[in-house]
Design a protein around this nucleic acid. Structure first.
Ligand SMILES: [Zn+2]
Ligand SMILES: [Zn+2]
Ligand SMILES: [Zn+2]
Ligand SMILES: [Zn+2]
Lengths: 132, 132
DNA sequence: AACTGGTATGTTATCTTATTACATAAGTTG
DNA sequence: CAACTTATGTAATAAGATAACATACCAGTT
């Protein structure tokens, strides 16, 4: 889990597709981009994504039903991550926020809630698009 | 926007279905529950939901593709809202958090990002289900 | 090499969620 | 009433995700 993961061919193809992309991709867009590499069915993409999500190399954007490669260079453990998603250009910024993490932790502690995954997604317009 | 909204028949039916429900409902589940009231097509639900979301009377849970009635008694303006979603029993707790709101506001301010909507969803297991 | 268990793949069909397109009805204003 | 806006009804289709089943591949063992 800590060391770099050996990816299978399909996993590597899916990860590369996401890493190359300028913005989040839906599973079906990934599928289309990998037709030439022999991809035929959605499941090939979803299965690869499942592993990549496990490994923390890819994140799912719940409000978009789409996926992005992790922005951190050495995709290790990260705490709570937040995404700012531009609705104009599609660009996504990934950042960690320990204050939000603490705040979530406070609430769950007070309420006896055991968190498994927390989603923070800010939709809006990025600086570039505002100055366009 | 501030006053209570006059709901159309369809909107009222959809809102009631959500208000009665013990946990979030998908659009298609709402449709099924409103068959006897004359609902036939998904669009009838989605159109009502669109308005109810506008009015702030209903929230969408992005990580579930489902909807809940707002938990606040007099559904007025609320700031940033967060949801804790139990994956065992489906119960959802809605709460506001000004600290997270401030933190989001700080980030967007620093980065020239103009936010339109922020999603905070904590998935996990609720106290009830843990003590079961 | 043959056996075994675990993981990865390929393929088809199906299910769930959401939207497009087009026609009709109902309210509102001048 | 005419013009306009908003709400509805219905069918078809798009987009996202999973179920089921068959194969293949890759250790480790006998
Ligand atoms: Zn990351
Ligand atoms: Zn942008
Ligand atoms: Zn609310
Ligand atoms: Zn629970």
């Amino acid at each position: 889990m800590t060391a770099r993961h050996e990816l299978t061919r399909n996993q590597a193809l899916v990860f590369d597709a996401l890493a190359k992309a300028e913005s989040p991709l839906s599973a079906y867009t990934i599928l289309d981009r990998l037709r030439d590499d022999g991809f035929r069915a959605p499941l090939q993409v979803y299965r690869a994504l499942e592993k990549l999500l496990d490994y923390g190399m890819v994140h799912r954007l719940e409000s978009l039903n789409a996926f992005v490669a992790c922005a951190h260079p050495h995709c290790g453990e990260h705490g709570l991550i937040a995404f700012a998603i531009c609705e104009k250009c599609g660009q996504v910024s990934e950042f960690s926020d320990t204050v939000i993490e603490q705040q979530v932790s406070d609430w769950t502690g007070r309420n006896g809630f055991k968190p498994s995954k927390t989603t923070v997604e800010i939709r809006g317009t990025c600086a570039n698009c505002l100055n366009g």
